[in-house]
Every structure is written in C-alpha cells, then in structure tokens.
Design a protein around this nucleic acid. Structure first.
Lengths: 179, 179
DNA sequence: ACGGACATGTAACACGTTACATGATTAA
DNA sequence: TTAATCATGTAACGTGTTACATGTCCGT
C-alpha cells in the first residue's frame, strides 16, 4: 500500500489538507506508518489529476491558501478496489534486530545499552498506544490493539531473555578476567 | 542497515558466494530480512572495490565459476564500525494492518477471510521459527526468539479480538437484515 | 530576536525490486 | 521434455526520503 493509497484512505475518514495528513501520520498512526511531505504533496496532486479527490482552496488571511482535499465517489470506489486486492507480504526493517544478530561482535556494555534503550522505547510506545486505543473507530482500535499486544510481547521477551546476548558477552569477559 | 552492510555481516560468519548469500536470506533469515540478486551482486562488487571483502574465483567443471567472497580485516573493522552506530528506527510496512484500519469499508466475509489467512500464516511462521531457534549462535537465537514471541502475541491477539472488526461488520449486516 | 507552528512544494538522491539476459546440469 | 537448481549479472523502474526554497504569524 503506497502513500498515495494511504492518503486516499485517510480522506475516506475526513477531508484534510496535505499538512493535516502529515499530522495524522505523525499522530496515532506513527507506530505503523509514516510519510514525508515529499511523498504526500505529489500523491495528493496525482489523486486530483486522476479525479479521485477534489481540492477546495480556502483563502486564509495571514496564511498561505489551505488546500483541503475531499474524496470523490470515484475515489471511494478506487480505494475499495485497492483494499479488496490480496494484501502483499509485510516488510520489516529493523536495525536493532540486525545489530542483535551480531551481538557477539560487540562490547558487552554496548549491547546492554542498546537493549536498555529499546526497552525504554517500547515502554513509551506502549503508553502511547494505550492512549490511542480509546479514540478512533473499530478498525483503528483493532490495529492499535494488535500493535500493543506485539510490542508488549517484545518488551517482555527482551526483559526475560536479554541475558542470552549479554550472557555470552559476560562469558567472554569472564574468561579474560580469569587470567 | 542496507543490503551491502548485511552482506558484509553475513561474511563475518562464513565465506559465501552471492548465490549462497541469497539462500541465507531465503532461509532462517526470511522472516526478518530479504534481498534480491539485483542488490546482492552489486553490493558484493562494491565491497570488493572498497577492499572490505576479497573474492576467490573457483573454477567448477560443468558450472560457471563460483565467486566465493571472504571478509578482510578492513571489512571486519568497517562492519564493527557500522554496528556501533546508533540503530535507526524500525520501519514497518504491512498491507494487512493497513487493510484492517479500514475494515468497516469491507464486506464482512472478506475481513474474516483475511484474518483466517493471516492466522494461518502466523502458524506456519511460528513453526518455522521454532525450528530455526535450535540452530545458530546466541545472537541468531535471540532474534529468532524475539520474532517468535511477537508473532505469537500477534496470533493470540487476532484470535481473541477478531470479533472487534468482524463484530462491527455483523452489526451492519444485522441491522440491514432486521428490515 | 528567535524558534516553532502553519503551509506548500520541488529536485536530487538513495535504495531496492523486477524483469531480462545467459547457460549448464539434473531429477521427474 | 520440462522444471528446478546452480550461477552471475545489468538496466529500467518504482517509491520514498532529505534537503532546499519560500513566507507568515505567534509566543517568549
């Protein structure tokens, strides 16, 4: 699902400007998706050309014009069509995970620091998601709940199993300390 | 962490050809990373130019030459250097999750089918990971375990909460059936 | 006076995939 | 004979990010 389609989807829920769409990505959706202005504005222009959204320019005093986009019936159909396509496979990219794969090459302290940081990040994220769970429709709540469940499991795993990568490092430092 | 660095990392663990590296990505690492020949071969060539890996051509009878790459001391240093950089944020892209966000726009049956499929995929993946857990060093086991824990939580959540998105659909169809 | 929010956009760049090109060997 | 596995590579394309360009208003 590319940014263009995602924007179209957001516009099924409410009219918005490019700037506002960015805010939505930075808000509750932050832990699942993101998009920069560099992809949002061109996407919106393309959708307009294709007749899937309509743009109403609102002149504002003391501010640049605000371009508010709303989805057209054709846009709704196109989005539905997209949603009905079999979803492609998830893709994931985690430098933390990649780093942990090679934990045995790193100084023990560094590994511990990385895990500490990640644990803290998970905690913040879980708080965020808890809060986000309240607001929003069923679909959003479901997705937020899924994220929460998975990140909570990740956090718990880190806490219970960090010794696996820290231990190995300790072993190495213990054998050199035993000299 | 780009493909080039990932290849370098794999070469810290054993010498390999481009073809073999692809097999590794398709094997135990499948659920965490992937890479196509179109990025692996150029990466390997670039690493060679940079002096981070060395290439030994093995003439094979009845097969094209096999180019086996091994990491150089400079390569090890460069990889370590890379690993010591603070890891960038995770990025995630899931069409399933995106689709679920808009579950209320979809036919109830379709949503149920999607979840059924996802549940089945999780089951297969968990089996895979269970098996992969045994082999490999501490780092790999840790990462595989983390994946397992998170996907298991995802599966459980889906099973226990699918009614949230199926229920809403049912509600809509119930009210129209009550006419 | 300065940084941050509001507001829109473009161009260069990075990174990766897909499809193509080539060709032998082996098992069904 | 047909498909799969072994084996390497390139070129076109897609998709997105970063950095830049521009300008106002508001709070401190």
């Amino acid at each position: 699902m590319d940014i263009r389609t995602l924007c179209l989807g957001l516009l099924t829920q409410s009219d918005a400007s490019g700037y506002e769409i960015k805010k939505i990505f930075e808000g509750q959706l932050r832990h699942f998706f993101d998009a920069s202005y560099g992809s949002i504005y061109p996407a919106l222009n393309k959708l307009t050309e294709e007749g899937l959204v309509r743009c109403t320019e609102q002149a504002q005093d003391k501010r640049p014009d605000k371009k508010v986009y709303s989805i057209t019936p054709a846009g709704r159909m196109a989005f539905l069509d997209e949603l009905m396509q079999p979803p492609g496979r998830d893709r994931y990219r985690s430098e933390f995970v990649a780093t942990m794969m090679f934990a045995d090459l790193l100084p023990p302290r560094h590994v511990s620091d990385l895990i500490d940081k990640r644990v803290e990040e998970y905690r913040v994220m879980l708080d965020d998601l808890q809060r986000a769970c309240a607001e929003g429709d069923a679909g959003k709540a479901f997705v937020v709940g899924l994220g929460h469940a998975m990140y909570r499991a990740g956090l718990q795993y880190l806490e219970e199993n960090r010794h696996l990568v820290e231990g190995e490092a300790l072993l190495a430092s213990a054998s050199s300390a035993a000299d």
